[in-house]
Amino acid sequence: MAKKNIKEMSFLDHLEELRWLLVRSTIAILVCAVVAFFFSDFIFSEIIFGPKSPDFVTYQFFCELGKQFDMADTMCITEINLPIQNREMGGQFSMHMWTSITVGFILSFPFVLWEIWKFISPALYDNEKKYAISFIIVSSILFFVGVLFGYYLIAPLSVQFFASYILSPEISNAIDIDSYVSLMKTSAIASGLLFELPIIIYFLTKIGLVNPTFLRKYRKYTLVIVLIVAAIITPPDVISQVIVTIPIMILYEVSILISAIVVKNQEKEKLKA
């Protein structure tokens, strides 16, 4: 069995490595944020405020889907009444800055992953280190797919639901820019990180915190939680709830498969020892 190539480092040495990881990652995020800062018109008009328009691609998709099931009246959106306001003197500038940083984080995510890999690689076996490029590519793809999933599915469904929710005719909606953009950021980034579930399960299995038996045992509870979340963030129809639930459960099943493979490989290594 190949032995781990672990450098003899003190606790302070590890802290120093972690510090430089954070420094390099922060610089990468800020560089990408500067680029995003100069494309604010496109980012806000076309991307962030895109789900406010009834012509947004997600709404059109659900409308066409509704027509196939004779549900066009409930699934076709003709108007979204969602006025956005700013109530702070420096609110728009602050929003410009923080949104640029958020975009910078998304764009620099592969580099951040590379830095994380370099930090943990000394604790890996020699035959595992050769998968560095695969790890970066797969993790980055999962993250970007998750961001797109959150932006094109969770965010517009949430926007449409909250914009149409009426507690009383006496109450009018005038949404703060912070609240709206926070919804968009959370939907995109949280989904991106959620799609990293197979990678997370891989490492948790490697260190013995989870195993395929544990994941299979709690599969039904996971399904219930996902269905509840889907029911909250989607319109009140079964089709849209299923569309949100299916990708997440597929990720969970893939995670179980990955965990099983890791455990199987660990057992083989023990037999060789």
Results as ranks from 00 to 15, higher is better:
N5A: 11
K7G: 08
E8I: 08
M9T: 08
E16S: 14
R19E: 00
R19M: 02
T26E: 10
C32K: 04
A33Q: 14
S40C: 07
S40F: 14
F42R: 14
I43D: 07
I48H: 05
P54G: 13
P54Y: 05
V57Y: 11
F62C: 01
F62Q: 05
F62L: 08
C63R: 07
D70Y: 13
M75I: 10
I80P: 09
L82W: 15
P83E: 01
N86F: 11
E88Q: 09
G91R: 07
M95Q: 08
H96I: 12
M97L: 15
I106E: 01
L113R: 01
I116H: 03
W117F: 08
W117D: 04
F119A: 06
I120Q: 02
I120K: 10
S121P: 02
A123E: 13
E128M: 06
A132V: 06
S134Y: 00
V138I: 13
V138T: 02
V138F: 05
S139A: 15
S139N: 12
S139Q: 05
S140M: 06
L148D: 15
G150T: 03
Y152I: 09
I154E: 00
I154A: 04
A155T: 11
P156Y: 12
L157S: 10
S158K: 05
V159E: 14
Q160H: 07
F161G: 02
S164G: 09
I166S: 08
P169H: 05
I171S: 09
A174K: 15
A174R: 13
D176Y: 03
D176T: 08
I177K: 06
L183Q: 08
M184T: 00
M184N: 03
T186W: 11
I189W: 00
G192F: 02
F195L: 12
P198G: 04
I200N: 00
I201N: 11
F203G: 07
L204T: 05
L204R: 07
L204E: 02
K206A: 09
L209F: 02
N211F: 03
N211W: 00
P212Y: 01
T213K: 14
F214M: 15
Y221S: 09
T222Y: 11
V224E: 07
V224T: 12
V226T: 06
A231V: 03
A231P: 00
P235E: 12
P235A: 10
P236Q: 01
V254P: 11
S255H: 05
L257Y: 15
I261E: 02
V262Y: 00
V263S: 03
V263C: 11
